[in-house]
């Protein structure tokens, strides 16, 4: 699954920060997951638990979802992406490459595919708590 690749990226970023900040141990990692990519939280959580490094032994992964907010570049309209409106095949394509949304999602006001993803595209680290 794709979630594994994302989990690997999270762990590697956390490890880099751990090293840079010279943490002895990481206690909490807050992760935000945007709704556009429809990441499966169960799989992500499982993958993260399997990929733990020694310094992450006691870590708590706090995973939160964030709405995907889109803004039309043509008319300025802002709206929230709703996956319920997508058929399964399209949802899956967007899951792998969020930019594919430009092939299927149109501004609800003017119909343009020229929108930007303001927030909620992929996965990002919100914060890390650790002990020195």
């Amino acid at each position: 699954m794709h979630e594994w690749a994302l989990a690997e990226a999270v762990i590697s970023t956390v490890s880099q920060i751990t090293e840079k900040e010279q943490l002895k141990e990481v206690l909490e990692v807050k992760i935000k997951v945007g709704e556009l990519q429809q990441i499966e939280l169960d799989i992500l959580e499982f993958a993260l638990s399997q990929l733990k490094t020694p310094k992450l032994k006691n870590v708590k992964f706090n995973i939160q979802t964030a709405k995907a907010e889109l803004k039309c570049r043509y008319c300025g309209h802002k709206w929230i992406f709703r996956k319920e409106k997508m058929n399964e095949e399209i949802a899956e394509a967007i899951h792998f490459v969020p930019e594919i949304a430009h092939a299927y999602v149109k501004c609800p006001k003017c119909g343009s595919p020229d929108f930007e993803i303001l927030e909620g595209r992929g996965i990002w680290l919100e914060s890390i708590k650790g002990a020195k």
Partner: peptide, 23 residues
Amino acid sequence: IVYYSGEHAVPLRGADISNALIE
């Protein structure tokens, strides 16, 4: 990318191209 876009046009701006490529 056609595995995901099929017959559809994928209008992308520069930053989107970068993001899709990295992904």
